[in-house]
Design a protein around this nucleic acid. Structure first.
Lengths: 176, 176
DNA sequence: CCCATCGGCTTGACACTGTCAAGCGGACGG
DNA sequence: CCGTCCGCTTGACAGTGTCAAGCCGATGGG
């Protein structure tokens, strides 16, 4: 309804289509049907717009985790991987502090809120961090095609399946 | 000596100072003391320049791994983490296919050559991939400050130490 | 020895970007 | 009914990547 929402929606669309680097404020404004300087009225600068989108992304990730019937570490890890591979551009943006206002309180709150779910599922912190790093790395390597190249898989669906399988293998191999 | 080498060196310097997004072909040309369009003569476009730098990065990573006395999975993982945290901007660029010519044969060769060292150290492929994803995720989370935020560590050296410790904890916990 | 050719580099231009300053216009309160 | 905001537009600026044309010196042939 409001111009701000239109701009956010347009930016989300541009993000899906062109990736975070392909987002131009002017293209977003054009898509939202406003003048090229309208975004300045709602977001201090480009980074502020991206930060708002990233914060939304963390909220969606948290919501996806909350939808789980049993929030075990294994289930959370699968949800994390699914989220990352379903919204690759959004996930990319969320973990790109150099392009965001990384100290924005709303962004930090949304991010910490998401990660707290991982923490709640493991009894010790080092297990939390190791598991987080594992699923995070899997998402990135799968998204960038590195996993598929090593394992000789072409279709994205196959790579996603491989990533999920590796996460399962990890939970089986890890001790206590 | 040659203009091409000067451009690559200037780009490396710009990369360290401003990150991959802050690299401007014109600034690189200025730094190398040539005209703003000189890069076009040696690199088809901006992505081609970045691709050449990324390929160099993979060669350096491979060299660091070859310097290891005993190329065990644990030692390779530490070397991977050290490389990523010592050259954060370079590492960032290397795994950013959207900004590179991802199908460039030289880049692919250099990349595969690096990763083959990980593969040689594990007896089964899924262990290779899991370990790779783990150290890769650790580098990214540590570099972006996410690890430090969770563990309440401010200094980069402390975060690097934490990442190394987590990698060690992983190798201890993982089964065969 | 001179001249022609050719490749590496420069110069100039274009469309596009993010950002800023000024100004318009309609809604809202006195 | 009038004045004052506030949201948005218009216009400008410096900076970007890329392309086209032209210069200029080294290289090779006559």
């Amino acid at each position: 309804m409001g111009v701000r929402e239109d701009l956010l929606a347009a930016a989300r669309a541009e993000l899906e289509e062109h990736g975070h680097a392909g987002i131009s404020l002017r293209a977003v404004a054009r898509r939202a049907g406003v003048s090229h300087a309208a975004p300045k009225h709602h977001f201090d600068d480009r980074a502020a717009l991206l930060t708002a989108i990233a914060a939304d992304g963390f909220a969606e990730l948290a919501a996806a985790m909350d939808r789980l019937p049993e929030p075990t570490l294994a289930a959370l890890g699968r949800a994390y991987i699914d989220f990352g591979l379903t919204h690759p551009a959004l996930f990319d943006l969320m973990f790109r502090p150099s392009e965001l206002h990384a100290d924005d309180p709303e962004l930090l709150a949304a991010s910490n809120n998401s990660i707290s779910r991982l923490r709640a599922a493991a009894d010790d912190q080092s297990l939390t961090l190791i598991s987080w790093a594992l699923v995070h790395g899997l998402v990135i390597l799968a998204r960038d095609g590195a996993l598929g190249r090593i394992a000789d898989i072409a279709e994205p669906a196959g790579v996603a399946e491989l990533a999920r399988g590796l996460a399962d293998a990890y939970t089986e191999r890890i001790q206590s």
